[in-house]
Design a protein around this nucleic acid. Sequence first.
DNA 1: TTGGACGAG
DNA 2: ATTTCTCGTCCAA
Length: 630
Amino acid sequence: MKTSALTSGGAKTIVARAPKRNDDRVILHFDYDCFYASVLENANPGLKGQPLGVKQKSILATCNYAARAHGVKKLMPIAEAHKICPGLVVLSGEDLTPFRDASKRLWSFLRSHSWSDRAERLGLDEVFLDVTDVIAYNQELLNRNALQDSFFQLSRHDPEKGFSFDATQFFGCIQPSVDPKDLTLLLDNPLCVRLLLASHLAGYLRLKLEEDFGYTSSGGISTNKTLAKLAGSVNKPQNQTTLLTLRDDYVQDFMDGHKLRQIPGIGSRIAQLIEDHVLSISTTPDSRDLEIGTKVTVREVRQYPSMSPDLLERILDRPGSERGSGEKVWNFLHGVDASEVKEASDVPTQISIEDTYMARPLNTPNELMRELRAIATSLVRRMRVDLAVADDPDHSSPASQQDGQPQLRWIAYPRTLRLSTFIRPKPNSTIPENLGRRSRSQPLPSFVLNLKDTSIEAVAERLASEALLPLFRRLHSERQGWNLALINVCVANMVMVARSSETGNGGGAGGARDIGRMFRTQEDKLREWTVYDPTPIAPVLDSTSSSACVTDTNDDVMDIEEVNKEKGVEAVEVVEELIETSDPVAISLDSDADAWEEEDEDESQRCHLCGHIIPIFAILAHERFHSVDD
DNA sequence: TTGGACGAG
DNA sequence: ATTTCTCGTCCAA
């Protein structure tokens, strides 16, 4: 990297130049206070104020502040917690459903306040928000002659929407602390004004989280994700901190005070390697302590002789390590982080279910199948919750659902199924490290995507016996006695599914449209991915049955006509997937199928394998299902 | 595409 | 009775 020669007292030292920070953005970070415990308290208000612990298996995943006052800690064994806090109430937190639901609601609310829709969840209890454009808008509106009586506009279109605030001071804490009388001077600095506005937005949002949803939180305000998150940790709980990035030494002093391991993005592995180097510890095979990366500060690493991105790269260089990680760490040490807050998405990139069995490892085929079934059931349920929506087409036949259950349709589906296991380290092995963690994957069998007349249990049973068990045998050839300590089943490699109907309301920028991306439907977002509306061909058939998605080799989605033009191929050759028709029985039981036959015989053709009428464009994909399904 | 390492809560 | 249950990214083969 770039270096510059400095002369100090005659001796020349080569010093790596500090990277340049970009303060163009405004980033908020929210961290809900002891989230799991708060969810359970809200579900059962009688618990409020009492010491509460949340249990997973044999340990406390977390606890509220009343419990912490008694010395209870996260990840503490239950028995120990009861000893030091006899009145401790312990509830199970093994089912994550209520935590996921609450997390999603809070995230949806926060998300509606980023006009660029950049709202990223980190775990269930943290959210990054990019509010750059909201802040810029309000900066222009600010009346310098009446700062005390300012109004923050949350909407471009509805001037009523917003809140009053005093723009002569920050909301919450600031870092570093500044003389109040200097503040008027600082207000001439546009960056300072933006951070001040952001502190009030964060304060308002935290207040709403508490009043409207019942969750207190900690907040961090700065110009990138790393700084916002670290700032938020300065004053917790129930408070917020704005890190003033007005001068480079403000930022550097702030970073320098942290231990290496505290920097998000520097994990135990990286911290260990750097620490060993800085402390000149020869790599003795047994020098690992429990606390890793907590001995050395950012300042000490930074000031280590001839420290530079290149040196860091060499320190971290090992097979499989990320290229450019030297520069990345170097940037972190200086509070530089260009990573963007990712655009909000309703579709997860993967869903996994796992269970651990350390008390009693699995060893017999019976135990194994029981667990595979249980995990498969949870997984199929999660898929239907997170990847499917109720199919209520505005213009379709209103009397379509007689039974209570709304018909579901996929908004995305996974292509890959993966099974991972962990073998418990044997009683005595010198380095009981990994190598116990292994996984195998395969294409997801298409029957899992059948939403019609198929109970979760039935699908899960098939999934366990026809897919997971074979995968398991690929991992472990032994018939039994595996000493299994963990099973993880994951679906990944998501494919967005095209929408079938309701492509309307293109232009109208109504006022209601604004605040809400809150009310932005999943369909709205998926429109970007939608390439083909099959309604004209199969107007009667349930929309899921005829959804298709076209993808070119660059994964860019295009209109089918354009694909034809560009590539000179027939439509049938670029139809990538057709879901839901995998089960011929389901089709034949569908009375609508008759309508299809009558109306579309011209453009359809009989499948020579199952004898059903399939629209011409879908024949290829349909035939693929016959091969996949067997 | 697959399997693993690593980092986050 | 140290190892919960996830989710995401990146790399090499």
